[in-house]
Amino acid sequence: MWLSGLRGFDWMPDLWSEIDRMQQETGRLLSGAGAASYQNFPAINLWMNEHDMIVTAEVPGIDPSDMDISVEGEMLIFNGSRHPENAGDGAKFHRQERPQGGFRRKIRLPYRADSGKVEARYDKGVLSIRLPRLEEDKPRKISIKSE
């Protein structure tokens, strides 16, 4: 009986992931995603565990010096711009599908990040930002004392 009670906890993470999924779905509905919108450029993915998070974004063709990243508590802001390629004399565009110009994204993180320890890397057009969780924000294990 006791064992089956313990097993009952197993579905808890699944419940949370279900809630996460629902939040994402709602966010998507509200943002009207699906229709291409540069408001959400660049697209991001977020990975996390107890200690830190990794935010990745696909921002090809941008000079790292043209990008600016800042962290304020639980807000991550990054902006930058992409310059059009100089194609030489008499250049004529046949197709222009790649987004150009400035972009800015503001993301609310699941928890506060330690802004002093944030690391960012840019490789093959993929930006990845590692954001350690603020020490005082980390979950604490509470031990139960028996009398």
């Binding site: 996460d20 994402q24 995603a33 959400n40 697209a43 991001i44 993915n45 977020l46 990975w47 996390m48 565990n49 998070m53 990794i54 696909e58 699941p110």
Partner: peptide, 11 residues
């Protein structure tokens, strides 16, 4: 990413 779970995805 090892030991991380994907929390949010746009792409």
């Amino acid at each position: 990413h090892e030991n991380y779970r994907m929390a949010y995805a746009e792409y």
